[in-house]
Amino acid sequence: MKPYESYTIEDFLEDESFRKWVQGQGTQEIFWLSFLEKYPHQRDAFRQAEALVRAANVAEEWIPEKEIRAEVERFIEQVAGAAPHLQIGFSDDDEEPEVRSGFWKRWLIAAAAVLVLGAGIGWYYYQNNDLEPRIATADTSPPNLVTTRNDSDKPLKITLSDGSEVTLSEQSSLRYPSEFEDGARVVYLTGEAIFSVKKQGQTFMVHTGKVVTKVLGTRFVVSAFDEDRNITVQVQTGKVSVYVDKPSENEVKGLIITANQAAVFEKSANQLSKTVVENPEKLPDNPVESILKYDEVPLPVILRDIEKSYGIPVQFDADSFWTCKITVAFSDESMYDKLSILCKTVSAGYEIVDGQIVVSGQGCSK
């Protein structure tokens, strides 16, 4: 096993599996995503090496070789002071730099190119006892996105840089920046994932094809497999807005959905609608006791308790149903089972309309 607990920046850069993971090409996503949980003291070296690998992808043909070589010479002088063990120098024929590996050569040239262009990663060193490298991001263009794909047979947990957690379902992938910058926190999902978004001032946005889910902080599920007919967003806690990115003239532009509600985008019809989730769960702060016993209680009172328990609006004619006295004891029944029992008792019915429960019937005679 490699000595990860003592890895230096150089060790990370020379680790092929680490470089491939940063570039979204590796097969060890689970290991590197959980690396800092196991080795939290390695955070600085880990993050700096990650940024260096991204800089190494800069095309070295952008500027003339002569200018690149001049910048490499200046850059090597800085590196030599902080890491003399790198064994970097120029060959006798004065053509190109000699370094210990091909990757180091490409890294140095790319870094020099970035310096000349005045964009990308800015390099600097400062004195803190010994010289310690630090990296500042100067590029204002969108960063390269990390791609994590779950090819396993069980959910994969990802912790984003803002502390938000994503549980990625099987055969699903997520594209996201290694570090969120100022402005909205934006990720791109293919497949299905559960999002537990940490509440911050920045908006969190999930792009899934034409549908965008926008929140500040809550827990929700997005399902957007390419082969499925629909894209669905189901809210477990809190509130989210769901809208179609660049809608056509006849499309619904956006919806607000809350706990136990779902937004469904039908791909073939380009139609966005609101409904209730298949298995509503009681709210965590449910004000109604889990075991409910009613003795000759008006139906509207019971329906309001259901509304409070699940956070789903229930619409009915209170005057018509007020004379319907119900005696019943609920325990572990689902929300739909409770509604069915109540409706059968008073010869009524219910349906789901626009994310709400609508109960209708003749009511009870006085």
Rank of each mutant, 00 (worst) to 15 (best):
P3C: 07
L13S: 04
L33G: 04
F35A: 01
E37V: 06
K38Y: 00
H41I: 01
R43W: 04
A45L: 06
Q48A: 06
R54P: 01
A56D: 10
A70S: 01
F75D: 03
E77Y: 08
Q78E: 15
Q78Y: 14
Q87Y: 06
I88T: 11
D92T: 15
D92P: 08
R100L: 07
L108S: 00
L108G: 01
G118A: 11
I121W: 01
W123F: 14
E132K: 15
A136Y: 15
I158C: 05
G163W: 14
T167S: 08
L174Q: 01
R175L: 14
S196L: 08
M205D: 12
V211G: 05
V221M: 12
A224D: 06
E227D: 15
D228W: 10
V240A: 04
V242F: 09
V244C: 02
N250D: 13
V252N: 14
G254N: 02
G254Q: 14
V264T: 10
A269P: 00
K274I: 05
E278G: 00
P284E: 02
E296S: 09
P298N: 01
R304S: 02
E307S: 13
A318T: 07
D319M: 04
F321E: 07
L342C: 10
E351V: 00
Q362P: 02
K366W: 11
